[in-house]
Amino acid sequence: MQNFIQQVMNGLVLGSVYALIALGLTMIYGVLGLINWAHGEFYMVGAFVGYILAVRMGLPYFVALVGAMLIMAVFGIVVERVVFLPLRGRPNMNVIIGTLGLSVFLLDGANLTMGPDPVRFPSIYTDQFIRVLGISFTVQRLLVVIVTLVLIAVLRLFIRNHKLGKAMRACSQDLQAASLMGIEINHVAMITAAIAASLAAAAGTLIGPIFLVNPQMSIAAVGKAFAVTILGGLGNVEGAVVAGFTLGLAESLTVAYISSYLKEIVAFAILITTLVFKPEGIFGKHSVEKV
């Protein structure tokens, strides 16, 4: 039982990160209709920005977290203008190659400027332990789960109630109709990219102190994010959250009760099974033939 609770806790931490990364990916798809193959790099760049603010500049951890999210929001807007805009409405193939170009550029750019060496990103919460009922974790891990849940709640309120949030929903249903209704597509596109990038930054800055920060972290993240996005339904925000936690728990429990060799396969098995049997995702209302 104790083992089970510990593994569930481990799964929740992993799931939080998957959910945050997948949220941005799914929102960009929902609103802009393009798959951002550089999304793993958004997460990596966000982690480095958080690292620079917190460790190199010595800002308090929460200031660095908010700072990284704001800086990455600006970064997201720049990427939307420079990269996504020229690709908007282009055939799928061109979008893939274009954003892959961005991905290669950011990954190797980070290798050049920050160096390939992993760096430690300590926060004051990494050395505080919580030990209850024989299970053990650091305060930072608890923080990951809590901050993730708060961010998700705020995002939900924004999408439901704010004017721009409603505009985003309208765009994700039908971009052309939304534009005819007088919604300024360019604004919505920029806001979406900004939110997606800042969520990725939050994921990076939250997880950085638990693991290490290096340019390669983007590669492992992106495959998982795709699996989560598909399981939740492409473009489905609630779905991404549920699917993120599902994958986190599935991985953790697979290692615990089956075999650690299978950990990496879980994500892709979920991905393929979903696509074959229910491509619209567990909550899917979206048409499979979007685009």
């Binding site: 104790q2 083992n3 510990q6 593994q7 481990n10 799964g11 931490v13 992993l14 997880i207 638990i210 693991f211 290490l212 390669q216 972290m217 590669i219 492992a220 991985e251 953790s252 290692v255 615990a256 650690s260 060799y261 950990k263 990496e264």
Partner: peptide, 20 residues
């Protein structure tokens, strides 16, 4: 005897199992 892949960052699951 537990395995992990290069690039993995989280080992809580394997370590929890080992601890038990």
């Amino acid at each position: 005897e537990e395995a992990y892949n290069i690039g993995d960052t989280d080992f809580y699951s394997q370590l929890t199992k080992i601890k038990n």
